[in-house]
Design a protein around this nucleic acid. Structure first.
Ligand SMILES: [Mn+2]
Ligand SMILES: [Mn+2]
Ligand SMILES: [Mn+2]
Ligand SMILES: [Mn+2]
Lengths: 220, 220
DNA sequence: AAATATATTTAGACAATCCTAAATATATTT
DNA sequence: AAATATATTTAGGATTGTCTAAATATATTT
């Protein structure tokens, strides 16, 4: 169907489109893909030929319905594989991404259908991100960033924004994981650092940390 | 490490080397890979540069130790994935090869180690072929082709030589599977067809069929 | 609005992999 | 051993995807 390279571009454009409401810029794609703007322009033309994106010179690209659907299916595969690696093969949440980047390109309808069944139809991946269903529908949970919550509140960790190995290992080290109850004791006005408690343990975290943890408020 | 294409060539050469004791010919590789002899020559030069094969013009290629080891590890991955697909994801033995051809190229030491453990260290794939261990050792079972066995003997099916969908579906239809007891009642001298019985059911099979089923003799 | 900075595209090139057609080497017949 | 057939390599080219450098368009400053 589509090449590995085309699939990676589609995924990148999809993720960039979430934020920007205008066409996604060549440079933004180049940065995300860690490649050169000229390479992006080349690829955009190919994707446009194949009706995966709409493109007007200098105006950026938008995914077509076909392009969007293709991207979502790749994300679905990526996240299902991540679940498999963590739940069945003893991978930790900081080890799965690289392998899932490869596995997401395996082409087999049956494989992904059976994997989904085997994993008992998971709805989120190890980082708290939603897994699109067969039809490409994504249920967006109403989650908030921890740094937006007021002191005194009790929350539950439901996801991470930064999924880098460094950040995930930091969280591991400090006993922060999906499902953990996080109580916010104080928020320092000066640098927005927070004093939180998890399992009766106090911990001070920087704004950089609190702005990369998704939570939902408890009992609401 | 190595490209998908390079890996596929190594695997093909490895399999061809099993039979031929001389260097593997360009044409043999071309036929196996369903490509052109000129493409094979191109690739052989690349593999030779990378010390994966030794090559003398017009004399065919031989895998180096490195090439052999690389090929065996790919075969190991291929067969482990086939076991996974059949045992865990409800694939039938005629459906796995195509997907395993893709999965065998996923690069992750940990993945294959954990998959092996998850499957409880299987020693053979769904077609009865041995799975090389971590160190690349292959235990060659002493199996015989059914057409070499004399009438009156009782055997157990332990593998298939032809793994094409058509042949595997024929076996399914006729209740022939790994582990089944096959009793040989008659062998027709004229065309070497056989009358066999499986689960008290009689079946006449052609020489083409009996020469693609591996068995071991019972009680010996 | 002109000058400057930034973003984007184009031109030209390169590596990997495949192909066809032609040239050459090796093997088989006669 | 010459003639013929078969196998293999080489030459030249296409495609995909990448890159650098130059050209051009758009955005921002002054
Ligand atoms: Mn990921
Ligand atoms: Mn994830
Ligand atoms: Mn196979
Ligand atoms: Mn097999």
């Amino acid at each position: 169907m589509y090449s590995l390279s085309e699939e990676n571009y589609l995924k990148a454009i999809f993720q960039l489109e979430r934020n920007a409401n205008e066409g996604v810029s060549t440079n933004a794609i180049a940065e995300k893909m860690e490649t050169k703007a000229s390479s992006v322009t080349d690829m955009i033309k190919r994707l446009s030929e194949k009706k995966l994106v709409s493109y007007r010179k200098y105006k950026g690209v938008k995914l077509s319905a076909l392009g969007k659907d293709t991207a979502v299916q790749i994300i679905r595969k990526h996240r299902l594989w991540e679940v498999f690696l963590v739940d069945q093969l003893n991978f930790s949440w900081d080890e799965v991404h690289e392998v899932a980047e490869q596995l997401e390109h395996i082409k087999s309808k049956k494989l992904i259908k059976e994997l989904d069944k085997f994993l008992d139809y998971p709805t989120m991946d190890p980082h708290g991100d939603p897994i699109p269903d067969e039809n490409g529908n994504i249920i967006v949970a109403n989650k908030l960033l921890l740094n937006e919550i007021n002191p005194g509140k009790t929350t539950v960790c439901v996801g991470v924004k930064d999924t880098s190995t460094d950040f995930l290992k930091y969280l591991d080290k400090n006993n922060i994981a999906l499902g953990k109850t996080i109580h916010i004791q104080e928020k320092e006005a000066f640098d927005e650092s927070m004093l939180i408690s998890i399992d009766q343990q106090e911990l001070r975290i920087s704004k950089l940390v609190s702005s990369n943890i998704y939570v939902k408020e408890q009992n609401q």
